[in-house]
């Protein structure tokens, strides 16, 4: 099996994996970063969202072999101790129910707000519509994104 060096959360990490292994499973199984979640495996739910060079991407569809030279950020590396404004907003609004989808929601929201500092409600709803929350905590996710936009 080939070796890869990945830049994850600011650290160089060595992994051995088949080249078609999705980043999702490299993060979870090899690097012990289990915050990134598995929901569908086909880029439909957003539970596995990470940032690749600051852009929100579905890690279930990213092969480990194409990530050379990129900067990968996962929920664990988004901030020190959960202090990112999006995470803070998630706390203030008490968003989660089961909580399983929330890392993906936060990663989508944080990449979106980095691009669009002053989004309209419609833009927020469109930007977040790729992330499923089976518990349907959508009202609170929407509120938290609005709050984070204000505080950024």
């Amino acid at each position: 099996m080939p070796n890869y060096t990945l830049n994850v959360n600011g650290q160089q990490r060595q992994v051995t994996a088949d080249e078609d292994t999705p980043l999702l499973w490299v993060l979870r199984d090899e690097l012990d970063l289990v915050g990134t979640k598995f929901g569908c495996g086909i880029a439909q739910c957003g539970a596995c969202t990470v940032h690749i060079d600051g852009v929100a991407m579905r890690s279930c569809q990213m092969q480990v072999s194409i990530l050379d030279g990129t900067k990968i950020t996962t929920i664990e590396g988004l901030s020190v101790d959960g202090k990112h404004p999006v995470q803070e907003a998630w706390k203030t609004i008490d968003v989660p129910q089961c909580g399983y989808c929330q890392a993906g929601q936060i990663m989508t929201a944080s990449a979106f707000l980095a691009e669009n500092k002053n989004p309209t409600e419609k833009e927020i709803r469109n930007a977040m519509h790729g992330n499923i929350c089976r518990c349907a905590s959508y009202n609170r996710i929407e509120k938290a994104v609005k709050l984070a936009a204000k505080n950024l």
């Binding site: 289990v34 598995f38 996962t74 929920i75 959960g82 008490d94 909580g99 936060i106």
Partner: peptide
């Protein structure tokens, strides 16, 4: 009175919590 979800911090920082995370 409102009390925040007791696992809130762990959830939003991606710590191991769920069955799928167990090793």
């Amino acid at each position: 009175k409102d009390a925040l979800n007791v696992d809130l911090h762990k959830i939003i920082t991606g710590q191991s919590l769920y069955g799928l995370d167990y090793k």
